[in-house]
Design a protein around this nucleic acid. Structure first.
Lengths: 203, 203
DNA sequence: GCCAAATCTAGACAATGTCAAGCCGCGCGG
DNA sequence: CCGCGCGGCTTGACATTGTCTAGATTTGGC
């Protein structure tokens, strides 16, 4: 129905994307277990067999959602770096962008980190690796001048990634407070990122 | 069939527990989406309606798994503290126990942190809160002597919890390397926990 | 303008979730 | 010792789902 058709002029416009959108919408209220392909098809206004044609499988549909999530994350992370010169500020911005992405796109984030829900195709793995590389670059830029060896950088990446990833996860699952309380989120997030740098917290 | 019956002498012995065990076993190979209640029933050797009688629902069954997971986690965390006096060592042991629990019981861990899969009963929330309290106590014990205020303690709990939780999550999802590579796990984990203390890493 | 390929529909079938009704064996009162 | 009630479990039934196949419809290239 929408005039914008991202790929080409198909029958429907862009059914694949419409199905992904419907899936994300529906997953805001239900778990992946409760979601049915037929329901997705109904929401998109097509016949019950259409999803299978594009994605083959429920796992295939989830894989599409996950890959779109990785793209979105990568964009957000890159945006967060724009115009920043201070390495430490870049690192912090990257971490914050990671968490904000998770909060803004909880469905994507959730699917992205449940690999047993998706068919791990090559594309999928590539998307995953690419979004990780952004974080890695930030850490490398920060630590390189200090003459840190590669191993140290790797360890720092894992520590930082774990921190923001865990925070996002715990927040989304309601373990840190009401997931709708944005003020609390900002407070906790800046408290955590303030202690991010291992040496001297400058705030 | 087994002689050990945890509760009482029912028809089956202890069907509820048997169904939970079957569920965990099956979830090692399949996603919650692919799992069917009837399959669980078959694995436990009972009729297809039995699970509904005990747990009502797929979400109810998952809730039972999650609660058992919280109990297990609490035990592991307490065990890790046994005989330790140094506060810093306690904290590190708690963090390590958290990750090791996740690795040893990946199914429980996964279900525990997908609240939309379960019916959040009161028991469920209570289990969740209890296992969290252990971590909180460790941090409080470590920071109290330094005269830190409550707010600081809370922020530290969140930071530490995020770190170990995120690490466990990333590891289980294969984002840090082959999830079967135990040597790598030990290496990464100690690297991360080594930088755990914000002041002076003593290694 | 027409043909082949791609997109989507429609129908069918086994399997699943879920509900209601019934069966079975343990425990209790006599 | 015996029947009887009750909770654990089974059985049967039905709507819904995943998945496959064949067919209808449109698009793009020649």
């Amino acid at each position: 129905m929408t005039i914008e058709s991202r790929k080409r002029g198909y029958h429907h416009g862009d059914l694949a994307q419409a199905l992904i959108d419907s899936t994300v919408d529906l997953l805001e209220d239900k778990s992946p277990t409760q979601l049915s392909l037929r329901e997705v098809a109904r929401a998109a206004g097509v016949s019950h067999g259409a999803p299978a044609h594009h994605f083959g499988d429920k796992a295939g549909l989830f894989a599409a959602v996950a890959m779109q999530g990785y793209e979105l994350l990568e964009i957000k992370m890159h945006e967060s770096q724009a115009g920043r010169t201070d390495d430490r500020a870049r690192l912090r911005a990257a971490g914050e962008a990671y968490v904000r992405f998770a909060v803004q796109h909880p469905v994507h984030f959730s699917i992205m980190f449940q690999p047993n829900l998706v068919h791990s195709s090559e594309e999928y793995l590539a998307s995953r690796a690419r979004s990780r590389a952004v974080l890695e670059d930030c850490v490398a830029a920060l630590l390189k001048p200090t003459g840190a060896e590669q191993k140290r950088i790797h360890a720092t990446v894992i520590t930082l990634w774990s921190q923001v990833h865990g925070f996002a996860n715990l927040w989304l699952t309601g373990n840190l407070g009401d997931p709708a309380d944005h003020a609390l989120l900002n407070q906790l997030l800046s408290a955590m990122l303030g202690s991010l740098s291992p040496r001297n917290p400058q705030k």
